[in-house]
Design a protein around this nucleic acid. Structure first.
Lengths: 155, 155
DNA sequence: CTTTTGTTTGGACTGAATACAATATAGCAC
DNA sequence: GTGCTATATTGTATTCAGTCCAAACAAAAG
């Protein structure tokens, strides 16, 4: 990435923060930027570790604050991947997640449009205002799936 | 519940533990029993607090151990309710969950197909062995939903 | 009843996240 | 630009969730 596109990216981040009604601050830009450029799913501490090592450093508490702010503003999303620590990702498109039972990897699963599994609009009952349905698929990823590689002898 | 049905229940629990290949021990019977009689979703510490106050007491570590054992044996289930602490429930039928964004309440949502793999097998991609798809519905429960028409009495 | 094997226990420990009060800074008015 | 004020950031202390461990214990098999 050259200087120009880096600048471009920062401009985009700034305008998106502003558009969401958030003040543009160093920590917010840096967290958002890092999450976007890394791609994938990351825990708060994961990001905090990288950012505190960077020039300027960064408080762990700030990372948590910023992640909450960005999530509330809808700029990033908190992935549903089961109990445990929270994983965040910068994604614009709605999707679901596959979580490997063995290695714990989280993989995005595109939302099959109009095929919301088991989604019956009347389901929760009257009075409920459901605004999203997140699906978590569980099983084994290719790397952990013994069925994948023919010829590999299983223990 | 009278003494006879209490005994009956314990017998059932014992046989279910045995049937799952688990030794029948006091802590296991008590945790399983409590989770069944309470109904709903409970965290390990929630259960530990009640059990340690009971006659005989109970170690917090044991509650965690037992919950893991029962979960692995398929006798109870670990509810997918998003990041944070784990919630367990004693339920025989596969279902999904609605989580209120405001109060955090977890409510069971019956699975439209009532069988475990209610999923699109092609979704994650080749090489993946998906064995379950859990749906988390998010929104507002009736108690937190301002849209609920005044005058409507919620059960 | 003895042995074997698996389980329980408490306490120390790790890791994730929050609370809070002091400090710093963005955005605005002038 | 300068200064003001509301909002953010920071570090530390603290809570909360969960794991680890080795010694004591108990279930099931012989």
């Amino acid at each position: 990435m050259d200087a120009a596109s880096g600048k471009q990216l920062e401009d985009t981040i700034e305008s998106r923060l502003r558009g969401a009604g958030l003040r543009v601050t160093g920590p917010r830009v840096r967290v958002f930027n890092l999450l976007q450029s890394l791609g994938g799913h990351h825990s708060a501490d994961d990001l905090a570790q990288q950012l505190s090592a960077d020039k300027g450093g960064m408080s762990r508490a700030s990372v948590f604050n910023v992640l909450h702010d960005l999530t509330n503003a809808g700029l990033i999303m908190l992935s549903d991947a089961g109990p445990g620590r929270a994983f965040y990702e910068a994604s614009d498109t709605w999707h679901h997640h596959f979580v490997c039972r063995n290695c714990g990897d989280i993989i995005d699963v595109p939302c099959a449009k109009d095929v919301k599994p088991c989604l019956n609009p009347a389901l929760p009952g009257p009075g409920f205002a459901v605004d999203e349905a997140q699906v978590i698929f569980r099983g084994l990823c290719p790397a952990c799936n013994p069925e994948v590689a023919p010829g590999i002898v299983l223990a």
